[in-house]
Design a binder for these strands. Structure first.
Length: 835
RNA sequence: GCCGGAGUGGCGGAAUCGGCAGACGCGUCGGUCUCAAACACCGAUGGAGCGUAAGCUUCAUGAGGGUUCGAAUCCCUCCUCCGGCACCA
């Protein structure tokens, strides 16, 4: 079927210049750079806005995911700039880390050289994006001018008692004699990535930060705008639990009691055995001689497992009796002591009282090993089971078989039993957290050396601030001998004690790279300051960050670490605010076409360069923002990129300077002009709201609708009218944050003053956007049967009268009056027929 | 396993303070232009059924149940996929 109509206007228009972004995109980027249009100035009187996106690891090549992550905040930063703010949008590189070291080992390239080359390549790739990055503030964390201050901050923490040394297990390859990172441990048998030898756990004394000092404060999100899922993840990660610590005396001579943590002290009468983590220090003390061989074998096997395996609630329970007993402080009964891998050394006290009747894991354990089950709480009215079944907790449960507490509501008994334990010195109220302190030692070369020296006399001492940075030596050997390159560097190792000037040995561990990324946002404020980590005046000007964007995969590590750092630095008197950013937004992850995370080893990495060369930067930017909700991401699929390119091409042709040849506009009417102006103002309102809500996909679809409306107006003969010209100008301004190059080029051609990115954002006028009529759906029993076209001010009863008068509605009512009429003003009318 | 997120046409997605399911785009089909093709432009396009037609009916938002005048949206049970789980960053 065809209407046979053709676009006669197009046929008579002069042949337009082809849409070819390569003719102008580079030109404008060169000009913007020369004019420093994107440099944020500290002395700009306009209100500051600090927009930050997570800096990348310089892995070698920018992939399409980097574009996806950066273009979103770039759009918002550009909008804020057009709305009159002094916007800072910096970029840098998180350049310490494992991949550089792996490259050094496998390809014999020095990490510093590999990293520098990658940064250079990626910076050039970033620049083709046309983002408003302020490159004059670039930060590179592996540069001594940066890690000097990373070390300085560690020293401040050390002196304040926030850094301490304690044992921590590492994965160890017994053949290569080297500590392995998680990603270097492969397969379910957990073998070394290089030699295939099964890894073992090894305890090393390492540096920790007392992050748990801040657990409670980190649970407080008041005053900051974080996505709900991130708040939930962080809250659950910190995992605050209230309960009691209870001491169970053991029967061994002189051994200290076993301290347990429980959230349900009210079930104490039901504790019929105890379970220690295999790593618990009392295991060696309490194990009987006849059980020792079994216990040691079990401990060894548990230490080979990952925590994820150990926390699984679906696995068959395992454990061994250690041949010792403790005493239940309430019942004074002897209870056997077991060890089992489901009790973790790092949570609570590393020991539990097992109440099999009322805890599912303990129940499964008791069933398997035929341990006694005693019911001590029951639903208010309920009977206790006699068949040894597990019963769920209920809100109204009361204590049973619990001495003087029998019959008391469980909720009250928690307090009462805890009080009695406190009175008798056997226990106390306690809060525990799932979160642990932060282990910051890494047995690696490519990181910031921990600025500590060890003196035989004075122990661990911070390297004096005026001797920072502790430079990473470059003349090191990366042969996989196992030992860290730093440990073999005799000259570097030897230092002096700042207290006695005697000989001292350097710490050879380096800092976790998450330390580097916990303060980089501060360095951007004064990136070239050689006297201080940051200039307090400039930090006061820019901080806190107004908008921080990055992947949700950082939800519980980086995004907790940088909050912790801010609070710790505040308590050292170095900052006067509590949170690093006011607002956080997450983009989703762009997966490979195979629905897997993009990685070089999978070979599914999508590079942007070829696409940019073919379509231009603007098309790639707009396409990435159009493919779906920004916070969702998804697998890469380039189908549809032509559609976006066509859209920008339509804008290209539509927004060329209008040629009217002095003749009056051919077919215009006041009504058509009003309709175009209305569409333009609806677009201003919706596009702005969508940008600010990070709904870039719907913003672009609304820009397409406006473009289509302008094309219809052109075909109707409105070219040459003020309304038409204003609409086209507005379209370019609204599109500028997404497609900065083509809008700049068109703006210039239309005679606009340079630069479009310095123009004021269009102002929405509600009156111009107002509609004359609305269409109201009429439902019968929830199904659409009729539509009414009314003016917005039609009275409600008039609308209902019209709805009931409709022939179609009447047909469904069968002549009877309706049972009910539901009228949601401005939305719909639903008529419920009589039965 | 635990924590968080997501499942809607052939495809990406739109519509979530419960109110017209499928905006916008891709693809496909038909047409205009062309010697022809490509590009571009115009039109149609969820499935099934009825009707010459305008149109009408009905089904449909991962599966099953529930609440409601009304459910993609709220509740319950389940399935699949993605992210995180403390040494990848």
């Amino acid at each position: 079927m065809t209407t046979g109509t053709t676009d006669t206007t197009a046929a008579t228009r002069p042949r337009a210049e082809r849409f070819d972004p390569s003719t102008y995109e580079g030109k404008w980027r060169t000009r913007w750079e020369a004019d420093e249009i994107d440099a944020a100035r500290d002395d700009d009187p306009r209100s500051k806005r600090y927009v930050l996106t997570m800096y990348p690891y310089p892995s070698g090549d920018l992939h399409i995911g980097h574009w996806y992550a950066a273009v979103g905040p770039d759009i918002v930063a550009r909008l804020h700039r057009m709305q009159g703010d002094n916007v800072m949008f910096p970029m840098g590189f998180d350049s310490f880390g494992l991949p550089a070291e792996n490259a050094a080992i496998s390809r014999n390239i020095h990490p510093a050289i590999w990293t520098a080359a990658n940064i250079e390549r990626m910076r050039a790739q970033f620049k083709t994006m046309g983002a408003m990055f302020d490159w004059s503030r670039e930060v590179i964390t592996s540069d001594p001018s940066y890690y000097r201050w990373t070390q300085w901050i560690f020293s401040q923490f050390f002196r304040a008692g926030l850094a301490y040394k304690a044992m921590a297990p590492v994965d160890w390859c017994p053949k290569d004699q080297v500590v392995l990172a998680r990603e270097q441990v492969e397969g379910s048998d957990r073998h070394c990535w290089r030699c295939g030898t099964p890894v073992v756990k090894r305890d090393l004394e390492q540096w920790w930060l007392r992050m748990t000092n801040y657990s409670d404060e980190l649970l407080d999100f008041s005053g900051i705008d974080y996505p709900e899922p991130i708040r939930l993840m962080q809250t659950n990660w910190i995992g605050r639990s209230e309960g009691a610590e209870i001491d169970f005396p053991t029967e061994a001579d002189g051994a200290e009691p076993i301290r347990v943590f429980t959230t349900r002290p009210d079930t104490l009468f039901g504790a019929t055995f105890m379970v220690l983590a295999p790593e618990h220090p009392l295991v060696a003390v309490l194990t009987s001689d006849d059980r020792r061989a079994d216990v040691e074998a079990y401990v060894a096997s548990a230490r080979r497992e990952t925590e994820i395996e150990r926390m699984s609630t679906e696995r068959e329970k395992t454990g061994v009796f250690i041949g010792a007993h403790a005493v239940n402080p309430m019942t004074n009964e002897r209870v056997p002591i077991w060890i089992a891998d489901y009790v973790l050394p790092g949570y609570g006290t590393g020991a539990i009282m097992a109440v099999p009747a009322h805890d599912e894991r303990d129940f499964a354990f008791a069933q398997k090993f035929e341990l006694p089950i005693r019911y001590v709480v029951a639903p208010a009215s309920g009977e206790l089971p006699t068949d040894g079944a597990f019963i769920e907790h209920t809100a109204d449960e009361v204590l049973a078989d619990s001495g003087e507490f029998t019959g008391m509501a469980a909720a009250d008994a928690i307090g009462a039993i805890t009080q009695q334990l406190e009175d008798t010195g056997l226990g106390k109220r306690a809060v525990t957290y799932r979160q642990r302190d932060w282990l910051v030692s890494r047995q690696r070369y490519w990181g910031a050396p921990i600025p500590i020296v060890y003196c035989a006399e004075h122990g661990a001492q911070a390297v004096p601030d005026d001797q920072l940075p502790v430079l990473l030596p470059t003349d090191v050997d990366f042969a996989p001998t196992g030992v860290s390159p730093l440990q073999q560097h005799a000259e570097w190792l030897s230092s002096t004690c700042p207290v006695c000037d005697g000989p001292a040995r350097r710490e050879t561990d380096t800092l976790d790279t998450f330390i580097d990324s916990s303060w980089y946002f501060l360095r951007y404020c004064s990136p070239h300051d050689s006297e201080r980590a940051w200039d307090p005046e400039k930090a006061a000007l820019w901080m806190p960050v107004d908008l921080y964007t990055g992947g949700a995969e950082h939800g519980v590590l980086h995004l907790l670490y940088f909050r912790f750092f801010t609070k710790a630095l505040r308590d050292l008197g170095l900052l006067d605010f509590d949170e690093p950013t006011r607002k956080l937004r997450n983009q989703g992850q762009i997966l490979g076409a195979d629905h897997q995370r993009m990685s070089k080893s999978r070979g599914n990495v999508q590079a942007p360069d070829e696409l940019v060369a073919r379509y231009g930067s603007d098309t790639i930017r707009a396409f990435l923002m159009f493919i779906g909700p920004w916070d969702q991401g998804g697998p890469w699929n380039s189908s549809g990129i032509e559609g976006i390119h066509r859209f920008l091409g339509r804008v290209w042709h539509l927004a060329q300077p209008e040629r009217t040849d002095g003749a009056a506009p051919a077919g215009t009417t006041a009504e058509l002009e009003r309709a175009l102006t209305r569409a333009t103002h609806v677009a201003i309102r919706d596009v702005e709201a969508d940008y600010l809500a990070f709904h870039f996909n719907t913003a672009i679809s609304k820009l397409m609708e406006l473009t289509n409306a302008i094309a219809r107006a052109r075909d109707a003969g409105l070219v040459g009218t003020d309304a038409y010209r204003r609409s086209v100008d507005t379209l370019l301004l609204l599109l500028a944050p997404v497609a900065p190059h083509v809008t700049e080029e068109l703006w210039a051609r239309r005679g606009g003053t340079y630069s479009i990115h310095r123009q004021a954002w269009p102002v929405f006028d509600a009156e111009l956007a107002a509609v004359d009529t609305i269409e109201l759906p009429v439902q019968v029993n929830g199904k659409l049967r009729e539509r009414l076209v009314v003016t917005p001010d039609t009275p409600q009863d008039e609308i209902e009268r019209m709805a009931l008068a409709s022939e179609k509605v009447q047909a469904y009512l069968g002549g009877k009056p309706p049972a009910k009429v539901i009228h949601i003003a401005g939305r719909l009318v639903n008529i419920v027929p009589a039965r």
